[in-house]
């Protein structure tokens, strides 16, 4: 009987048998969808500027409008379809953050408003906020010392 295959040998076999993700096509799709979302953001910002809002306010309004739009699209079941097509193109913009808050909220509401919706709403956004805040504190400490 031939010798049994080792884990290392098997790992090589698996690599050979498993098709790679179509990186090039995925990147092109991500580029266009991500680019379009940002362009829409620019359009909203420019409109806010026309109404005489400051740059700071305009970019806040832009975020808010994009977040609400993505949340509604998630509720309608359309954002997951966009995500399947665009990959990172719809994950990386702020709309992806909004989707990652709304999707678990909808999915886990059957487990109740407190421990279902209430707790699970942060399964993806929680780590984002946690590590974002931790990094900002580190940045703040360095900035305080230097200034």
């Amino acid at each position: 009987m031939p010798k049994d295959i080792t884990k290392e040998q098997y790992s090589d076999m698996v690599k050979k048998a498993s098709p790679d993700s179509p990186v090039i096509t995925n990147c092109i799709k991500a580029f266009f969808v991500g680019g379009i979302i940002c362009t829409i953001g620019q359009l909203i910002t420019n409109c806010c500027r026309i109404f005489g809002l400051s740059m700071e306010q305009s970019s806040n309004y832009t975020s808010i409008i994009l977040v609400i739009t993505a949340s509604v699209l998630t509720g309608l079941g359309l954002y997951s379809k966009l995500g399947k097509f665009a990959g990172a193109g719809s994950i990386v913009p702020i709309t992806g953050f909004s989707n990652s808050v709304t999707a678990p909220a909808i999915e886990f509401k059957k487990e109740g408003f407190i421990l279902g919706l209430g707790a699970k709403i942060f399964i993806v956004a929680g780590p984002v906020i946690l590590y974002g805040v931790l990094t900002s504190i580190a940045v703040g400490i360095v900035y305080y010392i230097l200034s």
Partner: peptide, 10 residues
């Protein structure tokens, strides 16, 4: 914006 998303995709 597109380029940043491509970084994420890669």
């Amino acid at each position: 914006g597109g380029i940043i998303c491509v970084i994420g995709q890669i």
